[in-house]
Each structure stands twice: as C-alpha cells, then as structure tokens.
Design a protein around this nucleic acid. Structure first.
Lengths: 193, 193
DNA sequence: TCCGTGACTGACACCTCAGTCTAGTCGAGT
DNA sequence: ACTCGACTAGACTGAGGTGTCAGTCACGGA
C-alpha cells in the first residue's frame, strides 16, 4: 500500500466517522479503528485530529462545488438552473456532507470558522453573480441579490439538513421541482402586497 | 437573592457562554466565572452541564416560537404573514439564538437530537398547516407543502445564520420584504418552465 | 544470510475537564 | 451569642482523549 493509498484510506475512514459521530464525539481512536490502522500510523500521515478534519472538510466542499457550472446565457437557462440545483442537492445528500458542513463545521475553532466563511462567501458570490446576470437579462426580478442568494441556498440547505436530521429519504427531483416552482411563482397567488 | 433568581442568573450566564463559545468549548468554569458564582453553587442548581444546556436550549426555542401566532383567516393575511416572519427573524437575531440552535444543538447527544427533531417537527408542522389553510382558500399555489414549509424555514434560517457567522448586521425589515417578494413572485420572471 | 530502512505498532505519558467534596465565611433570624 | 442554610474557594478524582516514542517487522539489496 503506497503512502498515498494510506492517506486516502485514513481520509475515507475519517469522513465516515466524522459524519456519523460529529467532530467532537469522534476520537482518533474511532478513525483508526475504522481504518484498521494503529495510532502511530495515523500521526505519520496527519499532524492532528483537527488537521485531518480540515482535509475532510475541504474535500467535502470541493465535491459540493464541483457540480456548479457557470451559466451559459445563450443556452436554455431554466434547464441549466435546474441542473445546478440538482447537482448541489445530490452531492449534499451524500450521507457525509450535510451534517459535516451544516452543523459540525461551525465553531470548531477560529481557523475552521474562517474556512467556512470563505466557503460560503465564494458559493454565495457565485449565486449572486448568476442572479445579477439574470437581472441584467431581465429574467430575474429586482431585489436585494445578496438576500435572495441566501434564500436560495437556505432552501436547499434546510431540506437537505432536515432529511439528514430525520434520517428520511429525500427525492432530489421533487425538491428540484419545488424549488423551481418557488423561484418562478413564489407561494402566494392573490391578494399579495 | 432567591433561589429562582440564582437559577435565572446561572441560566443567563450559561446562555451567553454557550452562544459565545459553543457547547463543547464552553466549560462549567466559564459559566460560573461569568455568573460570579462558585463551582459548588452551580451544582446546587443544575445536575450537570448538559442539564443546563438543555434548559438554555428550550428557553431559546420557547422565545423563538413565542412570536408565532395562529393565522386569523378573516383578517389581513399578508399582513399577518409578515408579522410572523418579522417575529421569527427578530428573535432569531438575538445574538444567542442563531449559533445555539443552528449549529451547537446538533449532535450533542441522542437525547438532544430528539429534542431538536421535536422542535423542528412542531415548527414545520405549524407552517405546513398554515400553508394548507392558505391552499384551501386558494391563495397558496399547489405543491408539496412539506417541502415548501422547509423552504420557508430555510430562507429565514440561512439569512440569520449567515449574519451570525459573518458577524454582520441584518436588517429585519429588508429580509422580511425580500422573503415576501420571494413568496409572492419568486425570482424568475420570464421563460420559466 | 545479514543488514538497513522505513512503515507500522500500541503502551503510556500527559492533559483537560466534569463532577464531588471539605473546610470555612457570611448574614439573617431568634 | 447561637443556629442554620446558602455560599465560596479550591483541592481532588476519574474518565476520556490526544499526541509520543521506543521498539517490531517486512522487505529489498548486498
């Protein structure tokens, strides 16, 4: 087994353990037992528990962002929007992701919080930019884009988070449809405003 | 100082400490130092660190739910909806609440998770019921109410959470307006579906 | 066959922290 | 002056967990 394989093996084990138990309730003991490796070996590959958690987390973040492609304004925009939402939803539904990112990552330490802020900042900035483009094209209504971007993110996060918390399955297609309906029509139909 | 006052004093201190440091990084030492009370006194009033955390948390939950009134279908519904949203937003913006409820409360232990599930379940059920009533009246479009309720909750949570994470101020009125616009019009205006 | 090398092992030193416990202080009531 | 109960200060215990280090072991080359 090459050193790289070992690293990957430990990272995989750690991801599973952190997702199942959370950062604080997971010990190095759990990780090495999951990986079938001795304590010393762990510290040959990672400086500390926090170090491996950081790597796990950035891996999760990369996976999550991977599905988000910039929008091509000349192609079918609604279709692309659906595609992006579906990509985010499906990768966030990966059993590890939701809990790690939405709950465990917060407040581990200052450095971790900074990484988290960075992650959300870039993600939200992308959404905001996409909305801005849409506004320029006249297909997105006027309004505070920063807030709107957070609303969008929140709708996705909450549904994924609830599914994770309740341990119940979530149909990505149904969620995508609901989100899409929300985006196109809102909820209220008459007497509004 | 009456026993009740002491309890309240400890609860207040604990709320501040847990909100500032998170559950795992807060120690009983922090709480008693914040309250200006000796260690033994703490254990005269609370069985354990977890016990006081549970009380803090349920207090937060109660505060949050307090502003949510059932909707009177004969009165101005949009106005009531705004009122409810504003109530939730403002109490969630209380510095303690966001972090405690959205991050720290998850995964402390099984019992805590159960309480959290219960809390979200009742909250979401209320929203869902309200939406169902609206659907009956024909002012809420058709769709999966369960998902829609979570979307609404998520929009609020995400904005409050981000404001807390970034430490930036959040104008409740602006958020209420944005949410309301979202509910009435969505985001996309043309070429949808 | 015998090293040299480096990955791997696991016992353990060490720390943190929740919760217990004791000795002593303080003030109010009698 | 005495009692009594709440409070303080802080030492202590034990559980639980991180990170270390001296030593084992497998393997490839001389």
């Amino acid at each position: 087994m090459t050193p790289q394989d070992r690293r990957d093996q430990l990272l995989t084990a750690a991801r599973a353990v952190f997702a199942a138990r959370g950062y604080h309730n997971a010990g190095v003991a759990h990780i090495i037992s999951e990986a079938g490796v001795a304590r010393g070996t762990f510290y040959n590959y990672f400086e500390s528990k926090r170090a491996i958690f950081n790597e796990v987390l950035s891996g999760v973040m990369i996976d999550l962002v991977a599905g988000v492609q910039p929008i091509d304004v000349d192609a079918d925009i609604p279709r692309q929007a659906r595609g992006i939402v579906r990509a985010i939803v499906t990768s966030a539904l990966e059993p590890h992701v939701a809990r790690l990112l939405f709950a465990e990552a917060v407040g581990v330490d200052e450095e971790g919080d900074a990484a988290l802020r960075q992650f959300y900042a870039t993600g939200l900035h992308r959404i905001e930019t996409a909305l801005g483009v849409g506004q320029g094209l006249g297909i997105i209504r006027r309004g505070d884009l920063r807030l709107a971007a957070r609303c969008l993110l929140g709708m996705v996060k909450e549904n994924v988070f609830m599914a994770a918390l309740l341990g119940e399955p979530l149909d990505p297609d149904a969620l995508v449809e609901e989100l899409y309906a929300f985006m196109t029509a809102g909820l209220l139909q008459v007497g509004a405003r």
